[in-house]
Design a protein around this nucleic acid. Structure first.
Lengths: 83, 83, 83, 83
DNA sequence: ATTGCGGTTTTTGCCC
DNA sequence: GGGCAAAAACCGCAAT
């Protein structure tokens, strides 16, 4: 562990932190852009919640999705909920 | 809500989603870059948990100042001082 | 607006705040109990994520649920996703 | 995973869910009580937003102290001081 | 009255 | 798998 605070380790630490902070700002900028698009979509009449669902679904492998649905059905059945 | 699925609304929807997905990829790319830096820092011997704490602490003062200002404004408002 | 800080208004404010804080503690206690049950269910082999979905579904009126599903299908269709 | 839907697992699942739902109702009840107090405070002339801020500020020091202690521990750890 | 916004709580994903 | 940070859903408020 670099413990010579006055030496090079402190510099490195500072550098790491600043690089991370810089990237986090960029990340935040993009997040804001995404938010803008959702707002625009909403303004056009779309339901943003559904859009989020779609995007979420497109991320997951179809197989996994079906597995979760199957499990959900199973639980519903066990509870006597309408199948 | 645009319900002519085959028409222009579908195109718009597709466009929105693709724009969002594109930006999310970018965002993920940056998140990965950040991860890499943490890995590098760890490889250099730093404790990433501490680095996270430091970054969090550095972020807080910024937010906190804004919050305090907001509270001050609220007090002014509550006291009937012109805003 | 009660602005006589030294008078009864300050007392009332204090009282409100303490009552709220007391209730928030209770609320947190219950939230912890809920967490415990999820943990127990998980320990018994259940999938907590699905349980959460079930509970969420049981909260919503069936009609509303179907509406959302219909909208989701519509969007999927518009995007050419497997229907 | 217990898959004998008709058997005891279904009973257990049902039991877990009902216990959770019961507690969530209680929690909601308390949340409503809190809401009522805010309403009462508002009716008395107080600004609820300010009250929320105050409660939030009062909560913070508690959490912050714990956080600082945790950070201190981390530093000790990072410096190789026996934990 | 309706809708957008801010803040709070809940859920999800991630790293260890 | 358990704890922690980020994202999303939810709710009350305000402004129009």
């Amino acid at each position: 562990m670099p413990d010579d605070v006055g030496g090079i380790a402190a510099e490195r630490l500072k550098s790491f932190i600043e690089r991370i902070e810089r990237l986090e700002e960029e990340k935040k900028g993009i997040a804001d852009d995404i938010k803008d698009i959702y707002a625009e979509a909403k303004g056009t009449g779309f339901d943003t919640k559904i859009i989020r669902q779609i995007i979420s679904l497109r991320k997951r492998p179809r197989e996994e999705r079906q597995e979760m649905e199957a499990l959900l059905d199973l639980y519903k059945q066990a509870l006597g909920m309408d199948v």
